[in-house]
Amino acid sequence: MKVIVDQVKCVGGGQCVIAAEEVFEQRDEDGIVVLLDPTPPPELHDAVREAVMLCPAAAIWVEDRA
């Protein structure tokens, strides 16, 4: 799994951090998403997919590779 974030669309809600804090963090000054782990291990994939759906700006998506 490869995680991609769009910092222009991000609205700094932090829903991604709540869903998967191992993968996402927020910048202190404006709350914009920081990607900690662009290729998270399988045990975090469900949490990342949850973050994709919870993001209130549709600013996260994943690419699956076989």
Binding site: G14, V17, D28, D30, G31
Partner: peptide
């Protein structure tokens, strides 16, 4: 204060 309010949850 985006990080502050999130952690205050």
């Amino acid at each position: 204060n985006p990080r502050g309010v999130r952690t205050a949850r």
